[in-house]
Computed example of a mutant assay.
Amino acid sequence: MVLVLTLLLLAFAGWAAPQATCWEEDGIRWCAALDGAQLRLGRVTAAGIEDAGPVPAEGITTIAASTGLLGARGKSLLRLDLPAKRWAEIGTLPAPILQLLPGEGGAMVLTGTAEQPVPDQSAVWWVQWTPVFAVTRVEAIGDNDHPWQLWWATVDGEQRLAAATHRATYYARFPHHCMFLYAWKDGKATPCWLGSRLSRPYREAAHADLRADGRTRLIALEETRDGGLGLSVYTPAQFGYTSEWRTESLPGLERIAARGTIVICTGNDDAGNARTWILQVKADGYELVPLPETPPSLNAVTALDATRIAGWWEGAWHIFTAP
Rank of each mutant, 00 (worst) to 15 (best):
R167K: 14
A88W: 07
D120M: 08
A65S: 15
A114K: 05
K75I: 10
R173Q: 15
R86G: 11
L80S: 06
N144S: 14
L93R: 01
L80E: 05
Q121N: 11
L98C: 02
L110C: 02
P131H: 08
R86H: 14
L77C: 07
T92M: 02
P117R: 08
A172L: 14
G105M: 04
A123T: 03
E104A: 09
F133D: 08
Y170K: 14
V118T: 07
A168T: 14
L100S: 02
N144Y: 13
R86F: 06
V124W: 00
R173K: 14
L80C: 07
A162S: 11
Y170M: 14
D156M: 12
L150R: 00
Q149A: 09
A88C: 10
A65I: 15
A95C: 03
G71H: 08
R86L: 12
V109E: 01
T169A: 12
A88L: 11
P94Y: 01
V118H: 03
A95K: 03
R160Q: 14
T136V: 10
A140T: 06
T113R: 05
T154C: 13
R79Q: 15
L69E: 10
R173E: 15
E158P: 08
H146W: 10
A64Q: 11
A107W: 00
I141P: 03
T92W: 00
L78A: 09
L93G: 01
F174Y: 15
Q159Y: 11
S76A: 15
L78V: 11
V127T: 04
H146E: 08
R167L: 11
A134D: 13
E89P: 05
E104F: 02
W152D: 10
W125E: 01
E115V: 04
Q99P: 02
D145S: 15
G112M: 02
W125P: 04
P83M: 06
P147Q: 04
H166F: 14
D145E: 14
L101K: 00
A84V: 09
Y170P: 07
T136P: 03
W126L: 09
S66G: 15
Q116D: 11
P94M: 03
A72P: 06
